[in-house]
């Protein structure tokens, strides 16, 4: 029987799952993921993890707990850097250690380090390490990875054409309500694990879509283009997400085709605390684009999110009605 490799459905899942799923399947293993984030996953995660951790890290703990007894091994890479000269959050770099200390009776964990800070080719070193752990030849691993990379690129192409990664991963589509003609385009900005995880953000994407909003995310632009847009900063951004986010903001300001920007952050996130503030200052200084922030934590009452989204879309439609000389609002 094929070995089952568990890939928890949190954090960088929304960015990289298609890559790792294809890679492990090519190696002759079976990639398995956890159920979508939900109350049970969150409760388990909160109970297991360190109190100081942020919501997405707690959620990840819950996903690991859900998977650990269903798989032969877990894939929790140590992501130090996923792009040249940039880092990601240290909590994600320390993830395998946090998980090992918080959760007992884990199956073997593949925790290879992925550090592309110096050169992006370093990914192959990680691939060979995985091969060694799994008893697979270097050549087979290399060809599996190149197949995985081409599948991943196909996934990225679909996203760049405007398909939400969640729709691809969940193999379903949420069509826009067809009665509405006046759709607005709203940029949903934030870490992938905050904006796409419906169980964490109280289904923000669906809520926006129900208001007739077309949701755009940074993944729908190529990272090369966003880096280009971010290059006007006085100094290079330290974080991968920060560069892309600021690039996206600059792009929206330049192209002037977005009706609003919603920044989703989680309470206590160090990176968000300044990327959000930088983004807000830029938007206010160089544009008139409506902007709002939604801060997530362990709330389950949805009234707060509903009120903010409704008021935000009201504001957009009110402004548009004014431009077209309709009476407002409603």
């Amino acid at each position: 029987m094929n070995k089952r490799v568990g890939i928890p459905g949190g954090l960088y899942f929304y960015k990289f799952y298609p890559l790792w799923e294809s890679f492990f399947n090519e190696l002759g293993m079976e990639a398995v993921t956890s159920i979508p984030s939900c109350r049970k996953i969150l409760d388990d995660g909160v109970n297991a993890s360190n109190d100081e951790a942020c919501l997405p890290v707690k959620m990840y703990h819950g996903h690991v707990i859900h998977l650990k007894d269903r798989v032969d091994m877990l894939f929790i890479p140590r992501l130090t850097s996923i792009s040249k000269n940039e880092y990601i959050c240290p909590k994600i770099g320390g993830l395998p250690d946090m998980i090992r200390h918080a959760i007992k009776n884990l199956p073997p964990v593949i925790d290879v380090e992925i550090n592309l800070r110096d050169k992006e080719k370093s990914i192959l070193e990680a691939v060979y390490k995985i091969a060694r752990i799994s008893g697979i030849s270097k050549n087979k691993a290399k060809s599996a990875y190149s197949k995985a990379l081409s599948d991943y690129r196909a996934f990225r192409e679909k996203v760049k054409r405007g398909v939400l990664p969640t729709d691809i991963l969940e193999k379903k589509i949420y069509p826009l309500p067809s009665k509405r003609i006046d759709t607005y385009k709203v940029l949903l900005l934030g870490h992938q694990y905050n904006i796409y995880d419906a169980g964490m953000n109280m289904n923000i994407i669906k809520k926006l879509k129900n208001k007739g909003v077309e949701v755009v995310t940074i993944d729908m632009s190529s990272s090369g283009e966003l880096r280009e847009y971010a290059s006007t900063l006085n100094k290079k951004m330290f974080w991968n997400f920060g560069t892309l986010a600021i690039g996206m903001i600059n792009k929206c300001i330049r192209e002037n085709n977005i009706d609003g920007i919603v920044y989703v952050m989680t309470f206590g996130c160090g990176i968000d605390s300044f990327v959000c503030s930088m983004a807000e200052r830029r938007i206010r200084k160089f544009s008139e684009i409506p902007f709002t922030v939604i801060t997530l934590d362990e709330h389950t009452g949805e009234a707060g999110v509903d009120t903010r989204i409704e008021a935000f879309t009201d504001m957009i439609s009110w402004r548009r009605a004014d431009e077209n000389n309709f009476s407002a609002p409603g």
């Binding site: 709002t292 922030v293 934590d297 707060g304 009201d314």
Partner: peptide, 10 residues
């Protein structure tokens, strides 16, 4: 028109 708004967070 409502130009901008903010509410208290958590």
């Amino acid at each position: 028109l409502v130009y901008d708004f903010a509410m208290n967070t958590v």
